[in-house]
């Protein structure tokens, strides 16, 4: 039995790729997948192997700027699709992570150049005096 896979392809805000370019590129591949353009990138669905092929191919547009994760619900599932007034309980999280994807994008670029994790000092608790300085307007 062929297992279906639905995936979100999310473009980093720092990438030069647009959702339109992404969707057109996937269409041009001629693979047997459903593609839906969205504000953050695209949603694709098809057989697992084909979807994986498409993802690895489409990543070549911007290796460090295109991200993806699987989605449980099918493309245009009436329980999730906005056209059917579906709910999007996970969208707040996706939106937040999309906003911060440029940090990971730049992080991947810098790691590719050989940069390592810096040793950071632990964050300390705010002292009472420090808290008073913030609160009290003098």
């Amino acid at each position: 039995m062929n297992v279906r896979e639905t995936r979100l392809i999310v473009i980093s805000p720092a990438s030069h790729i647009t959702p339109d370019q992404l969707t057109r590129t996937i269409h041009a591949m001629g693979k047997n997948v459903t593609v839906k353009e969205s504000c953050y990138g695209a949603v694709i669905e098809g057989e697992k192997e084909v979807v994986r092929e498409v993802i690895s191919e489409v990543r070549k547009l911007d290796v460090n700027g295109i991200f993806s994760k699987v989605r449980a619900f099918r493309v245009a599932d009436p329980r999730r699709c906005r056209a059917h007034h579906g709910t999007r309980p996970g969208f707040a999280q996706l939106e937040q992570e999309w906003e911060d994807l440029w940090k990971i994008h730049r992080g991947l670029d810098r790691t590719d150049k050989g940069e390592k994790a810096s040793v950071r000092t632990e964050r300390k608790k705010l002292s009472v005096e420090g808290f008073k300085r913030i609160c009290e307007v003098k």
Partner: peptide, 10 residues
């Protein structure tokens, strides 16, 4: 920030 992004990836 960007530095923390690099730290996470690394």
């Amino acid at each position: 920030d960007e530095d923390e992004g690099k730290d996470i990836v690394a």
